[in-house]
């Protein structure tokens, strides 16, 4: 194992979507003088988790795929009672998400109905502030409920003590011990977060730098927000999903935001930024980098902050 400059210790770099050849990530790895082995976490690719040849080639380093998806399949086979309870918990969480979304839509419907009324502008402004307050309250309540459910579940089942999970956690700790850095891919954010939590793999991170893109970046923040302005049907309401792992607090990571969000619709952008405040809503388009040091945003490159005015400040500095 070769180590890097101490400058990079404990650093986390969040990236936007990667091109097919992972050239952006590879360029960053060269800049950081990253040397292997690199622990790959590609669980967000789900069943394609092991298709990491192109990623390894791009990095030009030795890699070790931690195979969290495959390991979770092993837990399915090895811990049927636990998985039955886990599945029921996930169903419960899905229902909660659905009902939370229904409530979001009701708030949005009311806001729309109020905003078309011909009344004093100050009254409308007051009502819009109330809308933000309601959304924030609903978001907080939803996060709290999701967290409570997970806490109760973990308290009851103590997954780390289940033989299959324990075995994998021990293997992962040993594997990570031999690695110099960690790369976390984009993909399915829920699949990723669930497996990171199940195997508690980042507990053994030490001072290793982490490079994470898209869903990987979202997973490391303290709250995961789902967003898309062009859904195939229904309202384009952003929704909080759950707490993230909290290694990169204080931001909402927004991968591919220029493609997923109508950034020219300032009113919606401003409302979203006010709803998420004091968290900074940061763009993670292709080529973007957000560097965290000591748990704080240190530097932005090709990124921007969605402001309460509705503008995106591409020059924003932390």
């Amino acid at each position: 194992m070769t180590t890097r400059s101490e400058d990079w210790d404990e650093m986390i770099v969040l990236l936007g979507p990667q091109p097919r050849d992972f050239s952006d990530l590879a360029g960053l790895a060269r800049e950081l003088q990253l040397e292997g082995p690199v622990a790959l976490i590609t669980a967000a690719w789900q069943e394609n988790e092991s298709d990491d040849g192109a990623l390894t080639d791009a990095l030009g380093l030795s890699t070790v795929n931690l195979e969290l998806h495959r390991r979770s399949e092993d837990v399915v086979r090895g811990e049927p009672e636990f998985i039955e309870a886990w599945t029921a918990r996930q169903k419960h969480l899905r229902h909660l998400q659905e009902f939370y979304r229904l409530r979001l839509e009701a708030i949005d419907d009311a806001a729309m109905a109020i905003n078309v009324r011909h009344v004093d502008d100050r009254l409308i402004a007051e009502q819009n502030a109330m809308t933000i307050s309601q959304l924030r309250h609903l978001d907080e309540e939803h996060l709290r409920r999701c967290s409570d459910i997970r806490f109760e579940f973990d308290h009851k089942w103590n997954p780390g003590e289940l033989p299959t999970v324990k075995k994998h956690r021990e293997e992962l700790a040993a594997m990570l011990n031999d690695c110099a850095s960690i790369v976390i891919s984009g993909g399915h954010v829920v699949a990723l977060v669930n497996r990171l939590r199940l195997f508690d793999v980042l507990r053994h991170r030490g001072q290793r730098p982490i490079l994470a893109w898209s869903a990987g970046a979202m997973a490391l923040t303290d709250q995961i927000v789902l967003f898309h302005d062009s859904p195939p049907f229904g309202k384009n309401l952003a929704q909080v999903l759950d707490f993230g792992l909290g290694l990169c607090p204080g931001i909402v990571a927004m991968p591919d935001v220029s493609r997923r969000v109508h950034l020219d619709q300032k009113e919606g952008i401003g409302r979203f930024a006010r709803r998420m405040a004091p968290a900074h809503c940061l763009a993670l388009d292709p080529g973007a980098r957000i560097t965290f040091r000591e748990g704080r945003v240190h530097e932005l490159s090709h990124s921007g902050r969605l402001g309460e005015s509705g503008d995106v400040n591409w020059e924003w500095t932390p």
């Binding site: 979507p17 829920v190 869903a215 859904p231």
Partner: peptide, 14 residues
């Protein structure tokens, strides 16, 4: 189709 069978697109950030 997406209303009858909603996909995971809102969860996907690649």
């Amino acid at each position: 189709l997406s209303w009858l069978f909603p996909g995971a697109f809102l969860m996907m950030y690649e």
